[in-house]
């Protein structure tokens, strides 16, 4: 090998490797995006038809469906795995998002049980939808920063800030579920873009 050929080989290997790791991350964006869209439409339909906001508790079922599916995708990749700092950070960001989102949702449930007690008053201040979409947008934007991908960064801002604006304009009713539908579509679309960019 000449010096130029060696350098070209190094560059090509490193680029392909980096693209492969990012491309794999795209699968999880698509999975959670589709789940978010489906659950938001389901909660909307049940809330609208019955008039009961307690259908929001269905959100707790999303991780119960999503995590086994994510594990299934991961187990298919397992014989050929590679991790780097970026993939570890992105995984950490979304795990943290899951924990924070579940905590916010738990506050909402707490409120429904505790009503006017002091704990209930803390819970109602949490503003379930607004808090979750902000967390979601933040998680997506930071993922974009870690992956050095503008599509993800922009999608994160659009989801977080845009959805928050819609929330305050439309108010707290079943139509706020469309905010999650939008967030899910943006997330899944971002996953498809990431996969295409890194083929």
């Amino acid at each position: 090998m000449t010096a130029s050929e060696s350098l070209a080989l190094i560059t090509e290997t490193m680029n392909n490797n980096s693209k492969e790791i990012i491309r794999r991350g795209g699968k999880y964006f698509i999975l959670w995006g589709i789940l978010l869209t489906c659950f938001s439409l389901l909660v909307y339909a049940l809330w609208k038809s019955t008039g009961h906001a307690y259908w929001n508790n269905l959100w707790f079922a999303m991780p119960l469906v999503g995590y086994p599916l994510a594990r299934m995708i991961r187990s298919k990749e397992e014989p050929a795995m590679a991790t780097n700092a970026v993939s570890r950070i992105v995984s950490g960001i979304w795990t943290s998002f899951g924990v924070f989102a579940c905590s916010v949702a738990a506050f909402s449930v707490l409120y429904s049980f505790l009503g006017n007690s002091p704990l209930g008053k803390i819970a109602v201040g949490a503003g379930l939808t607004a808090s979750i979409v902000l967390l979601f947008g933040l998680a997506e934007t930071i993922s974009g920063v870690a992956l050095k991908n503008w599509a993800i960064k922009i999608a994160g801002f659009v989801t977080g800030i845009g959805s928050l604006a819609i929330y305050y304009i439309t108010g707290a009713n079943e139509e706020q579920m469309f905010i999650f539908t939008l967030a899910g579509i943006v997330l899944a679309a971002t996953g498809f873009i990431v996969k295409r960019q890194n083929k």
């Binding site: 090998m1 080989l9 492969e20 014989p79 050929a80 780097n84």
Partner: peptide, 25 residues
């Protein structure tokens, strides 16, 4: 060629499985 490709690949990750290296190289 192959050893250089392996080292270049490993320089960009924390660790990699044999199958992953085989696929990538």
């Amino acid at each position: 060629e192959l050893r250089l490709a392996v080292i270049s690949l490993l320089a960009g990750v924390e660790s990699a499985d044999f199958t992953y290296i085989k696929q990538q190289t």
